[in-house]
Design a binder for these strands. Structure first.
Lengths: 234, 234
DNA sequence: CGTTTTGTTGAAACATTTCAAAATAGGTGG
DNA sequence: CCACCTATTTTGAAATGTTTCAACAAAACG
């Protein structure tokens, strides 16, 4: 069957044992497996846009997705980068509001789509599953509160150092200590809420101070400890 | 009985029909009613502190609570002001993390406390209730994302105008158009993430421009339309 | 190979913060 | 209820971090 190739089985998916889906019964996994749609998304594709409505949410099997808002005068504010195992787009279908963010593929991705009615069926049937999703939302809420405090109180320099450290924690380094996510200077700027030029200047300061090395968009983390200290991370 | 005076009945509580508790059955309302603890809290009292653990969450019957984080060098970042009908402190008991905020009484309050095990019992028994709480968390998450974008992209002037408008929306005006929440200049500053002096200067600019009038901590909203325009609120 | 996007640099402009000093308001104990 | 003490508010001036603008270099792309 063609479908079997396009649609990986949920039973074999690593996400099912490590994410909100852990509390599903085998039957429920089967249910999701039958109803989800899995697709490959090319770099640059926009999955959904702020202000719009979706009729489901996404579970990322591989790749990287940029989740962002468009602020005053069209300036992009990046909320997060989602990767393997992350769930996105659930917020708006739960709260019943239009999407408060847009999502764009940063690295070619394989992503499953689960329809709102199917999600609600599971939520109604399996309270434990609901609690899992609630936990996820609460964790994200805590992260958002931290982020608010950081942006409000820290300098651009501190925030850049912090972002480098937290990107390292989320996306890791390769054998050469190179950050496994490649962002433009502008994206870095839109993540920490500053001007592109400021990011460029501060990155080359960090380079001079031997905290990082730069090769185009590749960033080698040389001295994470000092970066952490600069970031004022507790 | 003394208790009857201290402990208002949940069945008569306006919060039970307007908040996450709407989906509870009469029996479950009874359950909560028997197990909650309701107390009066004096101005200035700290309900819980960032980094600590609580064994339950709070439902506000009256009064105002300041929810805030302590950032670098002890600077307070106000996350929100909670009032009648709001639920606070649920995030950490759900996510299983220590509290990410502190909560302090701003205006004398009557607040009910519900124990974690009782919450979990309801969540497990009544999936609809869980969905309500999930919706609340998702709505707050959307608000947090908006706030991040605002702080990152708007000027202090814009943010101050925005905060005045949104405080009006949340706490209302009296017959004299005076904002029904009284904050120090420092608290306003800690809400929008700026220096106290900046708030003072901008408030008196707004006053000169006939957008507001000031009498100590009382702020009269004179021209909400213009404030909204300055705030770049869409 | 030309065209567009991204990255870099310098200099000037700007918003905001910081520091200091004084005025005012608020609260408490005598 | 006054007097005192503390916290808050206000103002000015200087310092600072960051942005903006402009021009150019380099890389990516079709």
């Amino acid at each position: 069957m063609k479908r079997a190739q396009e649609e990986p089985l949920c039973h074999h998916c690593a996400n099912v044992v490590s994410t909100i889906f852990t509390k599903l019964t085998p039957d429920e996994v089967e249910y999701i497996n039958d109803r989800k749609r899995c697709s490959r998304y090319e770099k640059g594709l926009i999955m959904y846009e702020e202000g719009g409505r979706t009729n489901g949410f996404y579970c990322i099997c591989s790749g990287i997705v940029k989740v962002y808002k468009t602020g005053v005068e069209g300036k992009e504010q990046i909320i997060r980068f989602a990767k393997k195992g992350d769930i996105i787009g659930y917020r708006s279908i739960i709260s019943g509001e239009p999407a408060c963010t847009s999502a764009k593929i940063l690295e070619e991705a394989v992503i499953c789509f689960i329809y709102t009615p199917d999600l609600y069926n599971l939520l109604k049937k399996n309270a434990e599953f609901g609690i899992e999703l609630l936990q996820l939302a609460c964790t994200e809420l805590g992260e958002a509160n931290n982020y608010i405090t950081d942006i409000a109180q820290k300098s651009v320099r501190e925030r850049l150092a912090e972002v480098l450290v937290s990107l390292k924690q989320n996306f890791g380094l390769d054998d050469d200590n190179i950050l496994q996510i490649y962002l433009t200077r502008e994206e870095l700027a839109n993540l920490i809420g500053t001007a592109t030029e400021s990011v460029i200047r501060l990155l080359s300061e960090f380079k001079q101070d031997k905290l990082i090395e730069l090769q185009g968009r590749k960033i080698r983390i040389v001295d994470e400890k000092k970066l952490t200290r600069i970031a004022n991370m507790m």
